[in-house]
């Protein structure tokens, strides 16, 4: 599903990392491990089409991500890649529902309130529909960002430290949701983390420190 080919990248000029070849298949999960500063986030951004690599290709399905033009890549990302970040970056000027409708609008998909309700219900947020973002707790906000990432039925879900700012309880809830939803949509799930609580639950692991 997602294929990395002869990738060269780095945080700075001195520390270049390279991955010659790696593949994550449909419904497979990959854990990217490493301390802060090891390049986890950079790698994740490259996989998400947010940052061009120095060399190499990222192929999702049949599409060479960096063979696309800038705006084509934006559109492709909106429709096929779901992104979850450490902090729940929601648009605070909008309600929960409008945040999700915005995601549909910006990706170029049809705005479907039924789908918005469905996803929110799956993540136990059915009653938060018209709430302002600020009225939600941290854990709830993070769940809304997961809902947003899943909304367009992405083929790849990329999560950057999704549990780092959550307590044990919420972390477990969020992690289970991510796994369950990825399986439901048969998406590849890639999580970058240094969170020890996450480590044991994934078979496929990439340790950037070991490279």
């Amino acid at each position: 599903m997602i294929l990395i080919d002869k990738l060269n990248f780095g945080y700075s000029e001195q520390r270049i990392l390279s991955i010659s070849r790696m593949e994550v298949k449909e419904s497979e999960h990959l854990l990217i491990l490493g301390n802060s500063g090891s390049g986890k986030t950079t790698l994740l951004h490259i996989l998400g089409g947010l940052l061009s690599p120095k060399e190499g290709r990222v192929i999702i399905g049949e599409t060479d991500l960096y063979g696309l033009s800038g705006s084509q890549r934006d559109k492709y990302r909106g429709q096929n890649i779901g992104l979850v970040f450490q902090k729940a970056h929601l648009i605070s000027a909008l309600s929960v529902q409008d945040n999700l409708l915005l995601a549909q609008y910006l990706s170029g998909a049809a705005q479907d309130k039924g789908r918005v309700h469905e996803v929110l219900k799956e993540l136990n947020l059915g009653d938060k529909l018209n709430k302002r973002v600020r009225q939600l707790s941290q854990g709830e906000q993070q769940r809304v960002t997961i809902a947003r990432a899943l909304l367009n039925r992405p083929r790849v879900i990329l999560a950057d430290e999704p549990t780092a700012s959550l307590d044990d309880n919420n972390a477990a809830v969020v992690l289970n949701m991510l796994k369950a939803q990825a399986e439901k949509y048969q998406a590849s799930l890639i999580i970058a983390t240094h969170d020890q609580r996450v480590k044991d639950q994934f078979d496929l692991q990439l340790n950037l420190h070991a490279l």
Binding site: S71, D74, K75, G78, H89, I91
Partner: peptide
């Protein structure tokens, strides 16, 4: 940045 990551183009 989030809007961009959700598929919005620069323009």
């Amino acid at each position: 940045a989030i809007m961009r990551s959700l598929g919005a183009s620069r323009s």
